[in-house]
Amino acid sequence: MQFTIEVGRYNSDGNYAPNAVPGEPYPPPWNRSPVRRYQTYTVDLPVHAVVLDALIAIREYQDPSLAVRCACRSAICGSCAMWINGHAHLACKSKLQEFTKNGKTRVESAPSMPVIRDLVCDMQPFWDKHLAVKPWLQAKEPVPPSDQEYRVPNASMEELIQEVSCISCGACLMDCESFAVNPDFLGPQALAQAYRYAGDPRDAQTKERLGEYSKPGGVWDCTHCYECVTQCPKGVAPLEQILKLRRMAVDAGYTNNAGTRHADAFASSVKHSGRLNELTLMPKSTGFFNIVGQLKTLPSAINMIRAGKLPPLIHKAIPGVNRIKAIFERVGGRFK
């Protein structure tokens, strides 16, 4: 069957990321959108072929200058995450037929990562984030003798298989909405790995980890867009792991941050009036006595007023709000 592939070509020969030092942490901002040239190829492949089959066929028999990372071809090694029709996918797991739109499939390096050449991007920002969450076990004392394992329930190990299934392909980070505007955000993969260790019963540093992950750039910088859950090819569902970390962090007492205050303000408003009081949400999240923080939100507030998005000045409760309160009482926990 004939497939048409449009490949985003780019060759940085001689001028790749002039501000980068190989092996050193990557200083943003990097060149997120170099000028790509789109080149169209036609390949003849079996009906069930995947995008990677097409790229390999092109590289082997049509254009040896096409650069693409790939190894296992079976969604294990994590090499071939790239943008396919504008979203991050593994090329080896994406069927050409499903991705053919208007007679073609467009493939390019994800624009959120610095591109080195063609479909090869620089993954250094991704690995830097991975390293930043201290992704190793801080063994809990007493460490068993060298001929004995930690005795833990199988359920506690099985629960972590979801995170360990991560193949570090980077698809989640490539399409992360928060990372797109904030390069400092640790991102979905790193935070999923953070949970993998924070949630391990053999780890001794769970509390310290939760403190670290609650800082700016951490769990509260996620905007719940669910892109990472949608794009992850291995079902790791990073957002779910981020939500687990948030609950653990709040339970561990890390509440003095905008994220927790925002969640509290949200819940409190809904509990007392049955709906969101947007007028008080921002000040409460920032902290009432955080004058500098409050002033920083002013420009957005002014923009909202200009755009006619000013919330009503008098916030009224909905009818039957007592039934909502009852729900909060019934659920219990932090917002009771």
Binding site: W136, L137, A139, V143, P144, S146, D147, Q148, E149, Y150, R151, V152, P153, N154, M157, E158, L160, I161, V164, Y197, D200, R202, D203
Partner: peptide, 18 residues
């Protein structure tokens, strides 16, 4: 056992051992 101590999430028997 060394890899277990490093953090590998090996499958456990009902008694919590490997």
């Amino acid at each position: 056992i060394e890899f277990e101590h490093m953090g590998v999430i090996f499958y456990r028997a009902p008694d919590g051992k490997l």
